[in-house]
Design a protein around this nucleic acid. Structure first.
Length: 271
DNA sequence: TATAGATGAGAAT
DNA sequence: TTCTCCTCTATAG
């Protein structure tokens, strides 16, 4: 489930499993054979995340950069690692376990300068201690672009994806199509603070839960919902179902090539 | 068994 | 805007 919280978990898992240790690297699928050969036998110095980008630094100062995209996935396991199954782009293995990477959007080795270039084009990350909401507000507060699109733009805010953007706008009662410049500073602060809370909870739980206890289906006398992405949410992929708060029918529309979900009752039109 | 769709993003048009 | 990358899962038949 690759939104930012997932990648921060992956960084922590890399750190725990491989940090300060020598690793064996291979590309069973073959598409990262050259890069894996360069990493093979190196000490993994530090694993870090900025938004949806995983950055793993080795003792030659090169950094492995992984972006999962929609499809990418990591599987961790205990050693001895079994024979790789399917298209494993990269396998790291150490004394404490192994990590298999499949289907990433990006898997490459970066020189130190490249890492700076990458990070410079990313906005602040609500999950990072250095994440500064003011930096994002400079973009948001001037944009004619709908806030729902701005929240998916990783150069504005790094980390949130389609689920968090839908859910945070619902929780703040904000019309997704409101242009950024028409938000108040307080509304932006509310969005940012809620992202910090929700995404930190996502890192801890390994899933996206955004529904307050009093709105859980059980508390409303309804059966619990089964949802593919693994968490309890207000509007994401709930089109046509009643809003957990006001009962209005949750709506969906395609916006900037992504599915947007919102509740017309709780997020009344402000455009 | 086949098909559509998905939590993303960069390039091409 | 549309295409393309790449893999897995849910759903339809």
């Amino acid at each position: 489930m690759p939104e930012g919280h997932t990648v921060h978990r992956l960084a922590a898992e890399h750190q725990r499993m491989f940090g300060g240790r020598r690793v064996a690297a291979s590309s069973p699928q073959g598409r990262f054979a050259e890069g894996a050969a360069r990493v093979d036998g190196r000490v993994l110095v530090e694993a870090d995340a900025h938004g949806k980008h995983l950055l793993v630094r080795f003792d030659d100062e090169r950094t492995l950069h992984v972006h999962l995209g929609i499809y990418g996935k990591y599987v961790f396991g205990a050693v001895p690692a079994p024979e790789p199954v399917g298209a494993v782009r990269l396998r790291l293995a150490g004394a404490a376990g192994f990590a298999d990477l499949r289907g990433p959007n990006a898997c490459e080795l970066l020189e130190p300068g490249d890492v700076k270039v990458l990070r410079d084009r990313l906005g602040p990350d609500p999950l990072r201690a250095d994440g500064d909401p003011e930096v994002a507000w400079r973009r948001v507060g001037r944009a004619r672009t709908p806030i729902a699109v701005l929240l998916m733009d990783q150069s504005v805010v790094a980390g949130p994806g389609n689920i968090y953007r839908a859910e945070v706008l619902f929780r703040r009662g904000i019309d997704p199509r409101l242009p950024g410049r028409r938000l108040t500073r307080e509304q932006w602060a509310g969005i940012w603070d809620d992202l910090v809370v929700l995404m930190a909870a996502g890192v801890r739980a390994g899933r996206i839960d955004t529904v307050r206890p009093e709105h859980m289906p059980e508390a409303m006398g309804r059966p619990p919902r089964v949802d593919g992405h693994g968490g309890e949410v207000y509007v994401y992929r709930r089109a046509g179902l009643p809003c957990l708060v006001c009962g209005s029918e949750v709506r969906t529309v395609e916006l900037a090539a992504r599915n947007l979900f919102w509740c017309p009752g709780c997020q009344p039109s402000a455009v």
